[in-house]
Amino acid sequence: RLIESLSQMLSMGFSDEGGWLTRLLQTKNYDIGAALDTIQ
């Protein structure tokens, strides 16, 4: 599930440099909407 969510976020133009996006998705239970809300 992480790989699916991460690949979708990467395709939106986000980077996972340093693993920050992986950690964010894990804390949000791989919910892309919740991750995007946090980023904004």
Score class of each variant (00 low, 15 high):
Arg1Ile: 10
Arg1Gly: 11
Arg1Trp: 12
Arg1Thr: 12
Arg1Leu: 12
Arg1Pro: 10
Arg1Met: 12
Arg1His: 10
Arg1Asn: 12
Arg1Ser: 12
Arg1Phe: 10
Arg1Val: 10
Leu2Ala: 08
Leu2Arg: 05
Leu2His: 06
Leu2Pro: 04
Leu2Phe: 08
Leu2Gly: 05
Leu2Ser: 05
Leu2Val: 06
Leu2Thr: 02
Ile3His: 14
Ile3Phe: 14
Ile3Arg: 14
Ile3Asp: 12
Ile3Ser: 14
Ile3Val: 13
Ile3Met: 14
Glu4His: 12
Glu4Asp: 12
Glu4Asn: 10
Glu4Arg: 11
Glu4Met: 12
Glu4Ile: 11
Ser5Ala: 15
Ser5Phe: 14
Ser5His: 04
Ser5Leu: 13
Ser5Val: 14
Ser5Gly: 08
Ser5Pro: 06
Ser5Lys: 09
Ser5Tyr: 09
Leu6Met: 07
Leu6Phe: 05
Leu6Thr: 00
Leu6Gly: 00
Leu6Ala: 01
Leu6Asn: 00
Leu6Ser: 00
Leu6Asp: 00
Leu6Pro: 00
Leu6Ile: 07
Ser7Asp: 09
Ser7His: 14
Ser7Pro: 01
Ser7Val: 11
Ser7Leu: 14
Ser7Tyr: 13
Ser7Asn: 14
Ser7Gly: 11
Ser7Glu: 12
Gln8Trp: 10
Gln8Met: 13
Gln8Gly: 05
Gln8Phe: 13
Gln8Pro: 01
Gln8Tyr: 13
Gln8Val: 15
Gln8Glu: 11
Met9Cys: 11
Met9Ala: 05
Met9Glu: 01
Met9Lys: 01
Met9Asn: 01
Met9Val: 04
Leu10Glu: 07
Leu10Asp: 02
Leu10Ser: 06
Leu10Tyr: 08
Leu10Arg: 10
Leu10Met: 12
Leu10Pro: 00
Leu10Gly: 03
Leu10Trp: 04
Leu10Ala: 09
Leu10Phe: 11
Ser11Gly: 11
Ser11Lys: 13
Ser11Gln: 13
Ser11Pro: 01
Ser11Leu: 12
Ser11Ala: 15
Ser11Tyr: 06
Met12Asn: 04
Met12Lys: 07
Met12Trp: 10
Met12Thr: 04
Met12Phe: 08
Met12Leu: 09
Met12Gly: 02
Met12Pro: 01
Met12Ile: 05
Gly13Arg: 01
Gly13Lys: 02
Gly13Val: 06
Gly13Thr: 03
Gly13Trp: 09
Gly13Leu: 08
Gly13Phe: 07
Gly13Glu: 04
Gly13Asp: 01
Gly13Ile: 09
Phe14Lys: 01
Phe14Met: 04
Phe14Ile: 05
Phe14His: 03
Phe14Gly: 04
Phe14Val: 02
Phe14Glu: 04
Phe14Tyr: 13
Phe14Ser: 00
Phe14Gln: 02
Ser15Met: 09
Ser15Val: 11
Ser15Asn: 14
Ser15Cys: 11
Ser15Gly: 08
Ser15Arg: 08
Ser15Ala: 08
Ser15Ile: 10
Ser15His: 13
Ser15Glu: 10
Ser15Trp: 06
Asp16Arg: 05
Asp16Glu: 03
Asp16Met: 04
Asp16Gly: 02
Asp16Tyr: 03
Asp16Leu: 02
Glu17His: 11
Glu17Trp: 11
Glu17Gly: 06
Glu17Leu: 10
Glu17Val: 12
Glu17Lys: 07
Glu17Asp: 12
Glu17Pro: 07
Glu17Arg: 08
Glu17Ile: 13
Gly18Met: 08
Gly18Pro: 02
Gly18Trp: 08
Gly18His: 09
Gly18Tyr: 08
Gly19Thr: 03
Gly19Val: 02
Gly19Gln: 06
Gly19Tyr: 08
Gly19Leu: 08
Gly19Ile: 01
Gly19Arg: 04
Trp20Ile: 04
Trp20Met: 03
Trp20Val: 04
Trp20His: 03
Trp20Asn: 01
Trp20Phe: 05
Trp20Glu: 03
Trp20Ser: 03
Trp20Thr: 02
Trp20Pro: 00
Trp20Lys: 03
Trp20Ala: 05
Trp20Gly: 01
Leu21Ser: 00
Leu21Pro: 00
Leu21Asp: 00
Leu21Tyr: 02
Leu21Asn: 00
Leu21Ala: 00
Thr22Trp: 09
Thr22Asn: 04
Thr22Val: 05
Thr22His: 05
Thr22Lys: 04
Thr22Ser: 11
Thr22Pro: 01
Thr22Gly: 03
Thr22Glu: 03
Thr22Arg: 10
Thr22Tyr: 04
Thr22Met: 08
Arg23Ile: 10
Arg23Phe: 10
Arg23His: 09
Arg23Lys: 12
Arg23Trp: 08
Arg23Val: 08
Arg23Glu: 08
Leu24Gln: 00
Leu24Glu: 00
Leu24Phe: 04
Leu24Tyr: 01
Leu24Lys: 01
Leu24Gly: 00
Leu24Thr: 00
Leu24Ile: 07
Leu25Gly: 01
Leu25Thr: 00
Leu25Tyr: 01
Leu25Val: 01
Leu25Glu: 00
Leu25Ile: 04
Leu25Arg: 01
Leu25Met: 04
Gln26Val: 13
Gln26Phe: 09
Gln26Leu: 12
Gln26Lys: 14
Gln26Asn: 06
Gln26Asp: 04
Gln26Gly: 07
Gln26Ile: 15
Thr27Leu: 15
Thr27Arg: 15
Thr27Val: 13
Thr27Met: 15
Thr27Lys: 14
Thr27His: 13
Thr27Asn: 13
Thr27Gln: 15
Thr27Phe: 13
Thr27Trp: 15
Thr27Ser: 15
Lys28His: 15
Lys28Ile: 12
Lys28Gly: 05
Lys28Glu: 06
Lys28Gln: 10
Lys28Leu: 15
Lys28Pro: 02
Lys28Thr: 14
Lys28Asp: 02
Lys28Asn: 12
Lys28Phe: 14
Asn29Thr: 03
Asn29Ile: 08
Asn29Ala: 11
Asn29Asp: 10
Asn29Glu: 08
Asn29Val: 06
Asn29Gln: 08
Asn29Ser: 07
Asn29Trp: 11
Asn29Tyr: 09
Tyr30Ile: 04
Tyr30His: 05
Tyr30Glu: 02
Tyr30Trp: 10
Tyr30Ala: 05
Tyr30Ser: 04
Tyr30Pro: 02
Tyr30Asp: 03
Tyr30Lys: 03
Asp31Trp: 10
Asp31Gly: 03
Asp31Val: 08
Asp31Ile: 07
Asp31Pro: 03
Asp31Ala: 06
Asp31Leu: 08
Asp31Met: 07
Ile32Asp: 01
Ile32Gly: 02
Ile32Met: 06
Ile32Trp: 08
Ile32Val: 13
Ile32Ser: 03
Ile32Asn: 03
Ile32Phe: 07
Ile32Arg: 03
Ile32Ala: 04
Gly33Asp: 14
Gly33Met: 14
Gly33Lys: 14
Gly33Tyr: 14
Gly33Ala: 14
Gly33Thr: 13
Gly33Ile: 14
Gly33Val: 14
Gly33Ser: 14
Gly33Trp: 15
Ala34Cys: 09
Ala34Trp: 07
Ala34Phe: 06
Ala34Met: 09
Ala34Val: 07
Ala34Arg: 08
Ala34Gln: 11
Ala35Asp: 02
Ala35Pro: 04
Ala35Glu: 03
Ala35Arg: 01
Ala35Gln: 03
Ala35Gly: 02
Ala35Lys: 02
Ala35Ser: 07
Ala35Phe: 08
Leu36Trp: 08
Leu36Tyr: 06
Leu36Ile: 10
Leu36Glu: 01
Leu36Lys: 02
Leu36Gln: 02
Leu36His: 02
Leu36Phe: 07
Leu36Val: 07
Asp37Trp: 11
Asp37Leu: 13
Asp37Glu: 15
Asp37Gly: 09
Asp37Val: 13
Asp37Met: 13
Asp37Ser: 13
Asp37Asn: 11
Asp37Arg: 13
Thr38Pro: 01
Thr38Phe: 15
Thr38His: 15
Thr38Leu: 11
Thr38Tyr: 15
Thr38Lys: 07
Thr38Ile: 13
Thr38Glu: 14
Ile39Met: 06
Ile39Phe: 05
Ile39Asn: 01
Ile39Gln: 03
Ile39Val: 05
Ile39Glu: 00
Ile39Lys: 03
Ile39Pro: 02
Gln40Met: 15
Gln40Leu: 15
Gln40Asn: 14
Gln40Lys: 14
Gln40Phe: 15
Gln40Ile: 13
Gln40Gly: 10
Gln40Tyr: 15
Gln40Pro: 05
Gln40His: 13
